[in-house]
Each structure stands twice: as structure tokens, then as C-alpha cells.
Lab assay of single mutants.
Amino acid sequence: DEIHIHFNGVTIEFRGLTEEAKKALEEAIKRGASEEELKELARRLIK
């Protein structure tokens, strides 16, 4: 299970995320999180 985020022309790929983690990332994107914020969020979620 993986998710691809297209962000300002950059694709960020995450693997092994739970549904909750995906929802958290989607919410962050909707509120306009920066690419760095998304990566940091993903790091926290994957652990």
C-alpha cells in the first residue's frame, strides 16, 4: 500500500501507511502544508 503526493511538480512517495496516516497527510495537504512539513509528518507517521 503506497501513496503518491504530487506537490509543486515533485512526487513524494510513501509506502506502508495506515489509513489514519493517509488521512493525516491528506488533511495536511488540504490546509496547505509545505513539502518539508509533509515529509516530517510522514516520518512521524511511519515510525
Rank of each mutant, 00 (worst) to 15 (best):
D1P: 13
D1H: 14
D1A: 12
D1I: 14
D1Y: 14
D1K: 10
D1C: 13
D1T: 13
E2M: 14
E2C: 08
E2L: 13
E2P: 11
E2D: 09
I3F: 14
H4R: 13
H4T: 08
H4Q: 10
H4D: 04
H4E: 07
H4I: 14
I5K: 03
I5M: 07
I5P: 03
I5Y: 06
H6W: 10
H6F: 09
H6G: 07
H6E: 13
H6M: 11
H6K: 08
H6A: 09
H6T: 12
H6Q: 11
H6L: 08
F7D: 04
F7R: 02
F7P: 01
N8H: 11
N8M: 08
N8V: 05
N8R: 03
N8K: 04
N8P: 05
N8W: 07
N8L: 08
G9W: 07
G9N: 07
G9E: 05
V10K: 07
V10C: 05
V10G: 10
V10D: 08
V10L: 09
V10N: 10
T11C: 14
T11H: 11
T11F: 11
T11D: 11
T11Q: 08
T11N: 06
I12V: 10
I12E: 05
I12F: 06
I12G: 05
I12R: 00
I12N: 03
E13G: 07
E13A: 11
E13L: 12
E13Y: 12
E13F: 13
E13P: 07
F14W: 08
F14N: 01
F14T: 06
F14I: 15
F14Y: 08
F14D: 02
R15F: 11
R15K: 13
R15Y: 10
R15N: 12
G16P: 04
G16V: 05
G16A: 07
G16S: 04
G16R: 03
G16D: 14
G16T: 06
L17Q: 03
L17R: 01
L17M: 10
L17G: 06
L17I: 09
T18W: 08
T18R: 08
T18F: 05
T18C: 12
T18D: 11
T18K: 06
T18L: 04
T18Y: 04
E19Y: 11
E19C: 05
E19V: 11
E19N: 09
E19F: 10
E19L: 11
E20F: 05
E20Y: 12
E20Q: 07
E20P: 05
E20H: 06
E20T: 11
E20N: 08
E20C: 05
E20S: 07
E20M: 05
A21E: 08
A21Y: 05
A21F: 09
A21R: 00
A21I: 15
K22H: 06
K22M: 12
K22G: 03
K22N: 03
K22R: 13
K22E: 03
K22T: 07
K22D: 00
K22Y: 10
K22V: 13
K23H: 11
K23G: 07
K23A: 14
K23Y: 12
K23I: 12
A24D: 05
L25E: 00
L25W: 13
L25H: 00
L25F: 11
L25K: 00
L25V: 07
E26S: 11
E27A: 11
E27S: 09
E27K: 07
E27C: 07
E27V: 06
E27W: 09
E27L: 09
E27D: 14
E27P: 00
A28P: 00
A28G: 01
A28T: 02
A28R: 01
A28N: 00
A28F: 05
A28M: 04
A28E: 04
A28W: 05
I29M: 13
I29A: 12
I29T: 04
I29D: 01
I29H: 10
I29L: 07
K30G: 09
K30E: 13
K30H: 10
K30C: 04
K30M: 10
K30T: 10
K30I: 09
K30D: 10
K30S: 11
R31D: 14
R31L: 10
R31T: 06
R31G: 10
R31S: 13
R31I: 05
R31Y: 13
G32Y: 02
G32Q: 01
G32P: 02
G32K: 01
G32V: 01
G32I: 01
G32H: 03
G32S: 02
G32R: 00
A33L: 07
A33S: 07
A33K: 02
A33N: 01
S34W: 02
S34A: 05
S34I: 01
S34R: 04
S34N: 10
S34K: 04
S34H: 03
E35L: 15
E35R: 09
E35H: 10
E35P: 12
E36H: 08
E36F: 07
E36T: 08
E36N: 08
E36D: 09
E36S: 09
E36M: 07
E36R: 06
E36C: 04
E37K: 02
E37C: 02
E37A: 04
L38D: 00
L38F: 06
L38H: 00
L38S: 00
L38C: 03
L38A: 01
L38I: 13
L38N: 00
L38G: 00
L38Y: 01
K39Q: 12
K39G: 05
K39T: 08
K39H: 09
K39M: 15
K39L: 15
K39D: 05
E40N: 04
E40A: 08
E40R: 04
E40P: 00
E40Q: 04
E40C: 02
E40V: 05
E40I: 04
E40S: 06
E40H: 02
L41Q: 00
L41M: 08
L41G: 00
L41S: 00
L41A: 01
L41E: 01
L41D: 00
L41K: 00
A42S: 03
A42K: 01
A42T: 03
A42P: 00
A42V: 15
A42E: 02
R43I: 14
R43W: 14
R43M: 14
R43G: 03
R43F: 13
R43C: 03
R44A: 14
R44F: 10
R44E: 15
R44H: 13
R44M: 13
R44W: 10
R44Y: 12
L45R: 00
L45Q: 01
L45V: 04
L45K: 00
L45W: 07
L45E: 01
I46Y: 09
I46T: 04
I46C: 14
I46V: 05
I46F: 09
I46H: 07
I46P: 01
K47E: 15
K47Y: 15
K47A: 15
K47N: 15
K47I: 15
K47M: 15
K47H: 15
